[in-house]
Amino acid sequence: MELAIGLILGACALGAGLAMIAGIGPGIGEGNAVAKACEAIGRQPESKGSVTTTMLMGCAIAETTGLYALVIAIILIFVAPNILVDILVNTMSQLPK
C-alpha cells in the first residue's frame, strides 16, 4: 500500500516535470517574435507603438501552449495525487481479503 502511494506521488511529480518541457516551444517562439519586432522598430522607429502592441498580442497567443502544459502540471501536482490515492484506497478496500 505505501509503495503504491509512493509510486503515485512520484509518477505525478515526474509527469508534471515532463509536461513542462513544453515550455521550450513558447520560449523560442517568443524570442523570435521579439527579435523581429526589434528589427521592425529599428527600421521604422515611428511605428513603435503599433509594433509593440502587436508583438505583445502575438507573444500572448504563442504562450498558450506553454500555459496548457502549466495547467496540466499544476493539476498533476495539486489535484491528481488526492484523487488517485482515493481511488487506490477504495479499490483496495473492496478487494476480497
Binding site: A60, E63, T64, L67, Y68, L70, V71, I74
Partner: peptide, 10 residues
Amino acid sequence: SFRHYGNILS
C-alpha cells in the same frame, strides 16, 4: 481563460 488564469497562478 487558461491564458489569464495560468499567468496569474504561475
